[in-house]
Amino acid sequence: MMYSKSFGILLILSLIVSGCGSNESPGENKKQTLHPSLTSNSIEVSQSWARPASAGTNSAAYLHIFNGTDRPDTLLSVKADAAENAAVHESYREDGISSMRPARRLIIQPDSSLSLAPGGYHIMLMNLKKSMAESDSLNLQLSFSETGNRTITIPVKLTY
């Protein structure tokens, strides 16, 4: 049983590592199979949330972006009213060490999606201006190369 579990963990890690090493990270540019009537011809943001944290520390926001337009769009930058600075970063593991790096240009192909999720791409909220507690919300501004700025309000959630 120990061997099978070790194999399971190694499998999970290898999937993460292989995702980090390729040009496409997990969750990025997943082709959707939506019925044409469900396409929005716009950028859709869903499943957004941020983790609670104390003032002066850091947190992260996560979300799912779907490009319903007919051309590629790029997430250029992010701003958050709750933090002094915000930027898209990527968590990755190497030899058992967890690290982060600023994300490269995140291009979302037409009819595809990009997931910012725990353990991968995330919006890093640096130096929180005030504590964010469960049930609070914050405003995020996402700037896209093609469709411009998009401001959303996202909930602060304590998820386990």
Partner: peptide, 20 residues
């Protein structure tokens, strides 16, 4: 470390899950 924005919070969530 508590200033960790992502990984440590996932780990803490795992700890809470184990206790639950």
């Amino acid at each position: 470390y508590t200033h960790c924005p992502d990984i440590c919070n996932i780990t803490t969530a795992k700890m809470k899950n184990i206790s639950n």
